Every structure is written in structure tokens, then in C-alpha cells.
Simulated scan of single mutants.
Amino acid sequence: MAKLTVNGRGVEVDVDPATPLIYVLRNDLALNGPKLGCGRAQCGACTVHLDGEAIRSCQFPVGEAEGRRVTTLEGLGTPERPHPLQEAFLAEQAAQCGYCTSGMIMQGAALIQARPGITEAEVLAGMEGNLCRCGTQPRVVRAVLSAARKGA
């Protein structure tokens, strides 16, 4: 049994502690924000926040998340009050197929949180591990910089 705090809510799940966090989030908690891409922590589609830091949930054992705060895209903002980066993604049209979008937003939000005055070079370096086959990276960078300027 694993006791977690996901998107501000306490939950208990009956899984092996070695189970990758993404499976618990998607299969047991029905959270569809994080996506399973490569399964090797190399593409970033599964990115969530753990105590405010971006992690790859496909390679993170759920047992190591006990007693810590997990935030997915669903917990970053709400439809009524989206996170500034979610708004910036819409304004910049930074999503195309959408598969990588959740991971991009979660990585970008963590970057902004860690460095509010983030530069373009820092965004490029910080987003390097989040892959997008559709080619929206320039719009993603603009969205992250826009949200940072607005004090996200």
C-alpha cells in the first residue's frame, strides 16, 4: 500500500512500491496528463512535479513518492484558473499533436519556479530533454518566456 499526495489530495493505492509512478497516476488514479512515451526517462512526456521539481514518472518508483507532493498537469491549474504557462501555451499555439505538451508544460513550470528571470538560453537548455516531433519547440520557448515575464 502506497500513501501519496497527488494534486493536493491524499490517496492510497495497493501496488508494489517498485511500480513506476506513471502507471499509478494513469491506471489507478485516472490522471491522463502524464503520457508514457519512451519509458526510459528520455523524452519527457511523463514529466510531473515531485515536491516542485520536475521528474520523469516512467522511471520513478511509486514507493519513493510516499510522503511527498506529486503534481500532474491536472493539478497545475484548473479549467477555471489555468496556470499562466498553460495560458501561454494556448496563446503561442505551442501544441500540435499534443502528446508532449503535458511534459513540456510541467518541465517549463519547474524551470520558471526555479528561476523566475529565466533567459532564452536557460529555457533551451532546461527543455532539451523534452522531445517534440511536431517541431513546436520555438513556440514552447516563447510560451515559457512569456509566462516567466508574467510572473508564473
Rank of each mutant, 00 (worst) to 15 (best):
V62K: 10
S102H: 11
G10E: 15
V15W: 03
D28T: 02
L85Y: 04
T71L: 02
N7Q: 08
C46P: 09
Q96V: 08
D14C: 03
I112C: 04
A54P: 10
I118G: 13
T5R: 09
G44A: 08
G126T: 12
L131F: 12
V11S: 08
H49F: 06
G77D: 09
S146E: 14
L124D: 10
L85P: 04
T136A: 15
V140S: 09
A152G: 09
Y23Q: 03
L90H: 08
A152P: 07
V141N: 07
L25W: 12
D51E: 00
A2Y: 01
D14S: 10
R56Q: 11
P61S: 00
P20N: 08
G151T: 09
R139W: 03
E128F: 10
R68D: 01
R133W: 07
T119H: 09
V140Q: 10
E120D: 09
G39W: 05
D51F: 00
G98H: 12
V123N: 13
A110T: 14
A2C: 14
G44T: 08
D14W: 02
Q59M: 12
A54K: 12
G103D: 13
M106T: 12
I22C: 00
L85K: 04
V13G: 10
Y99W: 12
R142T: 13
L90F: 07
D16S: 04
Q86T: 01
Q107P: 02
A18R: 15
